[in-house]
Nucleic acid binder design. Structure first.
Length: 603
RNA sequence: GCUGAUGUAGCUCAGUCGGUCGGAGCACCUGAUUCGUAAUCAGGAGGUCACGGGUUCGAAUCCCGUCAUCAGCUCCA
């Protein structure tokens, strides 16, 4: 890093480089790792990459090379196929070019001149089409010239700390029907240490990958003969999941939700009525039974609506809260499947709350508090976003306004900050999305709270009001975890497999010093089981050290060693993963401690 | 779904130019060892080289198709 100025931030927030502004035009951007500096550095690194590619593949044509959240990319087209091996070659060439200290120069030409200049380059023509202004700027470094609005560093010697991270295909302009270009992703920093740190973070994320941990800890599996995107829960994974399910089940019951359950499969007519057939049909699995078409449910709403509708409801029943761990099937495109994060069969922690429009606010507030309790329990930070009425929507503006206002007020009154996604709501109503941030800073969309005026209408559901009139309730769809599959994937990565005791698949592993201490261990194990905790005894014919090592690798909250001293004193020698220390406790103290930690799971 | 890559034992991975190449470590099984805080020793068993075709005297190896996985595009809980 240095005191060198590589650009300025104008008052309007715009970043300009030193090529465009030889004199100071705002606050300086120094060559460091500030967001503004990184934007310039990464943009220039993208150009450096393009220059290297052009040297290695002279006929290469370039589309766009922007800076993104995590680095930069450049989309381009070559005759040759570019694989992972080529990245090293390109990197090497980039280093060479960087050393040459090419000044990065800028000049402006008219649009037509630019069209002329890049006449043989289809991709640059496509870029030009997207530009409004009459003059365009060109950046030049050595032989290489590119149409670009900048900003860039002053010369290529600033660009030493980068890494090309992956190569992938990307559609021209993001259009699925358009040509597929080659995209190379990279990352760059001002200094070497930050690059190293970043690469370490990537390594850490890889270590935490739930697919890797899931198979190491024997939580879940897939079987290619059974089908893609269809998870199997192995005993340990199923233990974890069932703990999570029970904790959340009790949490729902305490909040006056009624458990219900709808069938997995319903006649297609129901899906026509709901609009799913038309709007969501492509993702649904359909089948035929006795010459009638049926659809496997991709959502749980209809079941809950039919249960609601089964008997006449009074205003006194509202808000009525039905919940279900609903197993749903959705046909996701094969390319998007990803461990437990994207599957074709999953279970939602789904609920539908039937209420009057006036009750929306209180109901939403209560759900938001529920979300807060759950996310705090798992040490997640989260943020919320309200999505408002989209162009294509049903229902009166007035009702939309009431509902949106209710959502905003619910959050405001809870002192919860939120963003607004203007026009991002569902066609049937506005919604709040909950985005959580995990232990290593990644964001995930989990819960959602959606106000719906559409389905009550379509299914003609009603309640009897105080004045004996039949009125239409509003439905609020909500999920807190989203799905058990996705949430457990996120939890696994969040905790790096070291789950808190109240959801850990195994709470304790006992390591008896020798065979004769096993029975003492199994006595405690039985007591734990009766308290609702699982333990294992590692008393196989292996060395003590080996068994401790195996136990530690399981990432359980407690590894407990028992030998002569422990049997004699009815005590345990604890290796506490949570506190990362070793200590001795009496059996009773240990039990109490565990019971207390199990109770911490209460939401 | 699209583009590219990959698929060898339960897991991680060697396997050159098509010809003693069916290999290693871990895990598993058996025996010895009975141990005080992260790998005791010895032996053994395990594979339709993803699946199906093709080329060839000969295929884990080359070609085609299918399935699955990975990265990305697009999409979503």
């Amino acid at each position: 890093m240095s005191e060198k100025i590589i650009g300025y931030i104008k008052e309007n927030g715009e970043i300009v480089d030193t090529q465009s502004a030889p004199e100071k035009v705002g606050s300086e951007i120094y060559f460091d790792n500030s967001p503004e500096a990184l934007e310039i550095i990464r943009h220039s690194t993208a150009h450096l990459m393009a220059q290297a590619i052009r040297e290695l593949y002279p006929e290469a044509e370039f589309f766009v090379g922007p800076v993104v959240d995590e680095g930069f990319y450049y989309d381009f087209r070559t005759k040759e196929k570019i694989g992972e091996e080529e990245l090293k070659r390109i990197e090497k060439k980039m280093k060479e070019l960087a050393k040459k200290r090419y000044p990065i120069e800028k000049y402006e030409i008219s649009r037509s001149e630019a069209a002329e200049k890049f006449s043989g380059d289809e991709l640059k023509q496509a870029v030009l089409k997207n530009i409004d202004s009459e003059t365009v700027s060109i950046y030049r470094q050595g032989e290489f010239e590119d149409l670009c609005r900048g900003p860039h560093v002053p010369d290529t010697s600033f660009l030493h700390n980068f890494k090309l991270t992956r190569v992938a295909g990307a559609y021209l302009g993001g259009d699925e029907n358009a040509e597929m270009l080659t995209r190379i992703y990279g990352i760059a920093f001002a200094d070497k240490e930050s690059l190293k740190e970043y690469l370490k973070m990537v390594e850490e994320a890889k270590k935490r990958d739930h697919r890797k941990l899931g198979s190491e800890l024997e939580l879940f599996m897939f079987d290619e003969n059974a089908g893609a995107g269809l998870p199997f829960w192995m005993p340990k994974g199923a233990r974890l999941r069932s703990r999570l399910e029970s904790i959340l089940f009790e949490a729902h019951r305490r909040r006056a939700y009624q458990p219900v359950r709808g069938p997995e499969i319903l006649k297609a007519q129901m899906w026509h009525t709901s609009g799913h057939y038309a709007c969501y049909g492509e993702n649904m699995y359909l089948t035929e039974i006795d010459e009638q078409e049926y659809g496997i449910k991709p959502m749980n709403c209809i079941g809950h609506i039919l249960i609601y509708k089964h008997s006449v409801k009074s205003y006194r029943d509202l808000p009525l809260k039905y919940f279900e761990y609903g197993v749903v099937h959705r046909h996701e495109k094969s390319g998007v499947l990803h461990g437990l994060l994207r599957v074709r069969e999953f279970t939602q922690d789904d609920a539908h709350i039937f209420c009057t429009p006036e009750q929306i606010k209180e109901v939403v507030l209560e759900v938001v508090e529920f979300v807060d309790a759950v996310m705090k329990k798992f040490d997640f930070d989260y943020s919320m976003e309200i999505s408002t009425k989209p162009e294509k929507a049903i229902g009166d503006d007035e009702v939309w306004e009431t509902a949106t206002k209710a959502l905003k007020e619910a959050l405001d009154e809870n002192g919860l900050p939120y963003g607004i996604d203007e026009g991002g709501g569902a066609f049937y109503g506005p919604k709040i999305d909950v985005k959580i941030t995990d232990a290593i800073g990644r964001k995930w969309q989990c819960g959602t709270i959606q106000v719906d005026f559409n389905l009550p209408e379509r299914f003609d559901i009603e309640y009897v009001a105080e004045d004996n009139e039949r009125k239409r309730p509003v439905m609020i769809h909500r999920a807190i975890l989203g799905s058990f599959e996705r949430f457990i994937a996120i939890l696994t990565e969040h905790y790096a497999g070291e789950f808190p005791l109240f959801i850990a698949p195994t709470q304790v592993i006992f390591v008896p010093i020798s065979q004769e201490h096993s029975s003492y261990a199994s006595q405690i194990a039985q007591k734990l089981l009766e308290m609702g905790m699982d333990s294992e005894i590692y008393d196989r014919n292996e060395s003590l050290n080996k068994r401790i090592r195996m136990a530690e690798k399981q990432k359980v909250p407690y590894v407990v060693i028992v030998g002569d001293a422990e049997v004699e004193n009815r005590s345990v020698a604890v290796r506490d993963r949570r506190k990362r220390e070793q200590y001795n406790l009496s059996e009773e103290e240990f039990m109490l401690q565990l019971a207390k930690q199990l109770e911490e799971g209460r939401i």
